[in-house]
Design a protein around this nucleic acid. Structure first.
Lengths: 150, 150
DNA sequence: GCCGAATCCTTGATATTTGAAGTAATGGAC
DNA sequence: GTCCATTACTTCAAATATCAAGGATTCGGC
């Protein structure tokens, strides 16, 4: 088989596997917590940033558009899970933070989420998991400095 | 690091890498052909099935809902890339096929698509590509017969 | 300090996707 | 043949995502 077909096959499997995991997680989050994967991902970023994050930082990190972040944050704000304040150093910027309720809510979801993920990837030996992590890193770097695709 | 955190890290990288590739492909398809990745994926399935596919088969294969397939096929039909006929053996079912124009259009996109993919995954040695393909297969199987997530 | 370009974000119009509910057709049990 | 559960698909509304355009603010050079 040619290298090109070989790459294609890998991509198809990468795509389908990720999509399947994604859907499984999203459905589980809906079922157990009435949330969704995009919401969870956004909260996860905030959890790691106690000082809060600006809208633009959020949009970079969760790989979505600015308009979408505005939309997501508005919804999470309505649920009292995050707050939004004008940055003291830059009046254009909004800083988003988790509320106490947001932290609790996220912590509960994170425990379940971690269990689900661990269960799925337990199918793979630890050495394979590490290898795959490294290999994906290589691919990821390549996309950031592409030859023909950008 | 615990196995659970290890798995989480792998999943985050899997997710972000796939999303980045997906967006790069989608943008390239838009730019070069005025199409999108979901459209391309649907056409790719039809290309492999000269006898055509039913709506339900399409929805399984491209991992999307029935309603979405109806929507996609309607759009592709409007562009004269596919046709839809009632199945002669089952009047409930619709059989979708590529038109001649659809085949040409897909062939052109497929060549470019294959180049883009080959370029991205060329970052990985052939042995790694094969290993990753196999490993992803293991994960994929696990999702289809999950322990706690379904 | 002032100007123009760049940055940060929101808005509004669309596009896409999902999910639930509805319609039509099938097939197996009787 | 008839009935009913199942299957195949569509429809509609709601959720989510994109994109382009616009308002406010900042920053660097002057």
């Amino acid at each position: 088989m040619s290298a090109a077909q070989d790459a294609l096959r890998l991509w198809l499997r990468l795509f389908s596997t990720t999509t399947l995991v994604e859907r499984a997680l999203d459905r589980a989050l809906k079922r157990e917590f009435g949330s969704t994967l995009p919401r969870f991902d956004l909260l996860a970023q905030l959890e790691r940033a106690p000082e809060g994050l600006r809208m633009g930082e959020l949009s970079e990190r969760i790989l979505t558009t600015g308009g979408n972040v505005t939309w997501l944050v508005r919804a999470l704000e309505a649920d009292k899970l995050v707050t939004r304040r004008v940055s003291p150093t830059d009046k254009r910027a909004a800083v988003v933070r988790l509320t106490a309720a947001g932290k609790r809510h996220f912590a509960a979801m994170a425990r379940a989420h971690e269990r689900w993920i661990a269960d799925i990837f337990a199918a793979l030996p630890a050495a394979d998991r590490r290898a795959m992590h490294a290999q994906l890193g290589v691919v990821k770097d390549r996309i950031r400095s592409p030859r023909t695709t950008a």
